[in-house]
């Protein structure tokens, strides 16, 4: 199945190189079958509005949860490297998505954790300015959310 996915990723980038026009039909095809759910979430990653990111993830009615623990600095001096560590204590956590709300493209990453991977996530991201970080956890098909404000001294987008 993974090989199949690789082929699809390759196919999408080939078409991407040809230009944006005429792409929408293929995108529809790519998004439809659930077997290919792991194909890069292009609408989510390219959207500039948090609400649209939520929609692309299917997480429009996420519940706030205290069971998501975000370990990140309150003040990050360098916006180019902001370490974010997330631990979810929600049972059956399937995926974790990270959104930096005021970034030019808010969705930073979405990660599926499968087959024994712990509901844990660590990555370093870039943040353009002081912003809320929102974490979305998908567990048993439901979405849960938590957030944390991070102050940025020097933006990391340029």
């Amino acid at each position: 199945m993974n090989l199949f996915r690789r082929q699809f990723l390759r196919l999408t980038s080939v078409v991407g190189a040809l230009g944006v026009t005429g792409l929408s039909a293929l995108e529809l095809v790519l998004q439809a079958p659930s077997a290919l759910a792991a194909v890069w979430n292009k609408p989510g990653f390219e959207s500039k509005v948090v609400e649209e990111v939520m929609k692309s993830l299917g997480a429009t009615n996420a519940q706030p949860s205290a069971e998501i623990h975000i370990n990140a600095p309150d003040i990050a001096e360098n916006g180019a490297v902001v370490p974010i560590e997330v631990t979810s204590r929600i049972n059956n956590t399937q995926s974790i998505a990270l959104i930096a709300e005021k970034n030019p493209f808010p969705l930073a990453a979405q990660v599926e954790l499968l087959n024994g991977a712990e509901p844990y996530f660590y990555v370093r991201i870039k943040m353009g300015q002081t912003s809320r970080i929102q974490v979305l956890v998908k567990a048993d098909g439901k979405f849960y959310t938590a957030h944390k404000e991070i102050k940025i001294t020097i933006g990391g987008c340029g």
Binding site: V82, A109, V111, L114, G116, Y122, R124
Partner: peptide, 28 residues
Amino acid sequence: LNETLVYDGQWSQAISRNPVFALRIKGA
């Protein structure tokens, strides 16, 4: 992990240069 997919990440350009990431796997 031994041919089994454990981490399937989709990233954006917001991940820092020279990315560092971590994961934990139970039962390894």
